[in-house]
């Protein structure tokens, strides 16, 4: 992929992102309310997209990777994103350095 292509992709992505930030307001100002099924689908989008970037690791990952995910998930039940992320990262680094 050429450097110019990368730059163009970044610019296109920026425009697409801005579209999402202004689009909801532009569309909603035309309608009185969003259909509940559309709203339910929209609410599901972030978790549905993000989990697909994690799930295949269950097949490809070894013991350190899967342990890190399990620990991060458990910690996030009790606290926020940052502690969960750090706990998962620490587990990953320690287990890898032990050669597990």
């Amino acid at each position: 992929m050429s450097s110019l292509t990368v730059t163009l992709i970044i610019i296109a992505s920026a425009l697409a992102t801005y579209l999402t930030r202004i689009g909801g307001h532009l569309v909603l100002s035309q309608f009185r309310r969003i259909h509940p099924r559309v709203e339910a689908a929209l609410n599901a989008v972030p978790a549905a997209v993000l989990i697909t970037l994690v799930a295949p690791s269950l097949l490809t990952g070894g013991v350190p990777e899967i342990s890190a995910l399990v620990v991060a998930a458990l910690v996030s039940l009790r606290s926020g994103l940052m502690p969960a992320f750090i706990a998962g990262a620490v587990v990953l680094l320690v287990m890898r350095s032990l050669g597990l």
Binding site: A44, A47, L50, I51, V54, A68, S76, G88
Partner: peptide, 28 residues
């Protein structure tokens, strides 16, 4: 491998939403 950990943290952050678990299981 930091990104998958980070993304999982984000996914967990949405867990109070309706249908979160079925959606995560289906998409996963």
């Amino acid at each position: 491998f930091l990104l998958p950990i980070y993304f999982l943290g984000l996914v967990m952050g949405f867990r109070k939403r309706a249908l979160w678990l079925p959606v995560v299981l289906a998409s996963g």
